[in-house]
Simulated scan of single mutants.
Amino acid sequence: MTESILIIDDNEDILDFLSVVLGGSYKLHLAANGEIAQSILDKEIVHLIISDIMMPGIDGFELCRLIKSNVEYCHIPIILLTSKNTYKAHIEGLEVGADAYIQKPFSSELLQVQIANLLKNRRKIKEHFASSPFEDVRVMAHSKTDEAFLKKLDEYIKANIKDPNIDIDMLAEHMFMSRTTLYRKIKSLSSLSPKELIDITRLKKAANLIARNEFSFYEISKMIGYSSQSLFSRNFQKYFKMTPNEYFDSLPRE
């Protein structure tokens, strides 16, 4: 999947320059001001934001503050660009939640490395969560808001884990979000679809039950909402790269 970057700057030359520098590696969305940026965030999955600070209307600091306080977008890393060469501006950028702060004029190489590092760190966390049987969903949280969101989502799935029909509509109703907003949030935060997140939550519960060694694989598949043991075994291997039997054999014995 090509990651997408939202670039916000009222200077057309900067937008053109960044389009040339980043266009070959990422899907780009361009906005001349905060209002346009908001409408893009409401429609698209965005993995990273680059914003100028000095803009008419909503400036970069205020935009950063708004994004980081909104549960729908607060997980998105933000790089602020500024011509202000002062500690006060740098501190203010960090206080409103910016993940990186780059002074103009800047080297395109420095910007590319910052972007790559932020996205790589997010990817590593997502991959670790998806492939580790015991890793908690909150490992993917990048803020207290994200942590509360993931905890509420996780608790609902676990409370209804025996139901084979849990779907995105049930999740959206519980989270008081529209279906599309919830899909964007989960996909951007975890790189998983809501269905995949539900599957992984089921399988992590299964890993816990296998470790307890109290139930057969057939019983466990029913307890976590699978209609068949073979489907359970296939999905377990798909995510954890081993069968339930291999997983059981790998566990330490007292």
Rank of each mutant, 00 (worst) to 15 (best):
I91W: 10
K195F: 12
M55R: 05
I210G: 09
A116M: 01
A32F: 13
P252H: 02
T201I: 04
Y101Q: 06
L81W: 03
A32C: 13
L251S: 11
M140W: 05
A37I: 01
T82D: 03
A98W: 07
V71W: 12
M55C: 00
F240E: 01
L22P: 06
L28A: 03
I91Y: 13
D59W: 06
L150P: 01
I8L: 05
G57V: 00
E246I: 14
K104Y: 06
I210M: 12
E127Y: 05
C64Y: 01
D154Y: 11
P244C: 05
S25K: 15
P56V: 03
E147I: 10
I78G: 03
S250Q: 02
S132C: 01
G225L: 08
L189I: 12
A206R: 02
L28N: 04
G24N: 15
I78R: 04
S193Q: 06
C74R: 07
G93C: 00
E72M: 14
E214A: 08
D10K: 01
V20H: 11
F232A: 02
F134T: 07
I5H: 06
D163R: 08
E109D: 14
I102D: 05
I166N: 05
E246N: 15
K27P: 03
E12L: 13
F17Y: 11
L182W: 00
T180V: 14
K204W: 03
I161Y: 02
G97P: 03
E173L: 14
D52L: 06
A32L: 14
Y218Q: 15
K88A: 10
K84E: 12
